[in-house]
């Protein structure tokens, strides 16, 4: 268990005092097995108690500690110091307004998430008579299970160039989570969610860069969800406009 001195450059911003964000350097002794979050906690506890950042679980489950580490969106609790030999630059997640230091304003994401109704809208008749249970086969579970792994960490929003260009874009995680319920055999809410997902600022702002899937710490593959929604929305459009006899 070795120790080494690591140079950090952390973005600081206190809206009550600072005219603009600036970088602050910290040179701290770190243990070799630490992650970036350990180093931040060490700085806050013994060097500079004014440093602000979000974290909770320290095990890549809560999705709170998303930040830019050397320019890449990362969970601070999953970024090992041993993978960063030189200076480590830590900044708040890109594409989000800074509230204070590494803390971002996430209201936009939360509002968009609510719009796709990421909860079960029960399919009439899907429950078993008598017991009221919703039976599901392993194959039906497999259709959406991957998309349930999203922890709302917003790394995909920081990675997505389209979200940076078009703030109205509903974004990768929200589409993946809406798609997660659409693909659930117990759910009957797809028509309601399509009003958001199939809109111009839904899947159609995506140009399939794929950065969302590359940075996703839980391997949700939001880009796959977006492509699947695009295909289904296209089939919807063609059946609705070209094959009206199929419409109920």
């Amino acid at each position: 268990m070795g120790e080494r001195t690591v140079e950090f450059e952390v973005l600081r911003y206190n809206p009550e005092k600072d005219a603009a964000p600036h970088f602050q350097r910290y040179s701290v002794k770190c243990r070799e097995e630490w992650v970036v979050l350990d180093a931040l906690n060490h700085i806050k506890e013994s060097v500079d108690p004014t440093l602000s950042y979000r974290w909770s679980c320290h095990m890549a489950v809560c999705g709170s500690c998303g930040m830019m580490v050397n320019g890449e969106p990362k969970l601070a609790c999953k970024s090992f110091l041993r993978d960063y030999p030189g200076l480590i630059r830590v900044e708040p997640l890109r594409h989000f307004p800074v509230e204070r230091d590494l803390v971002t304003v996430i209201d936009d994401f939360v509002a968009k998430l609510a719009r796709v109704k990421p909860f079960l809208i029960p399919q009439p008749g899907a429950a078993q008579a008598g017991t009221g249970e919703y039976a599901q086969t392993p194959a039906q579970l497999k259709r959406y299970k991957q998309f349930t792994l999203c922890i709302n960490c917003m790394l995909c929003y920081a990675a997505c160039p389209e979200y940076g260009l078009i703030p109205e874009y509903i974004g990768p995680a929200v589409i993946a989570l809406g798609h997660r319920w659409n693909e659930d055999s117990r759910d009957g809410g797809r028509a309601q969610r399509q009003e958001e997902l199939a809109a111009t600022n839904g899947v159609w702002d995506c140009s399939f860069v794929g950065a969302c899937s590359e940075v996703c710490p839980e391997h949700v593959d939001p880009a796959a969800a977006i492509q699947q929604v695009k295909i289904k929305s296209t089939i919807d459009w063609y059946t609705e406009h070209l094959m009206p006899w199929l419409n109920k």
């Binding site: 009003e195 809109a199 929305s233 919807d236 459009w237």
Partner: peptide, 15 residues
Amino acid sequence: MARSNKPIVWGPFAA
């Protein structure tokens, strides 16, 4: 929000 007409151009693109 209305559903987009983008599928007109995206369908042949994907195919």
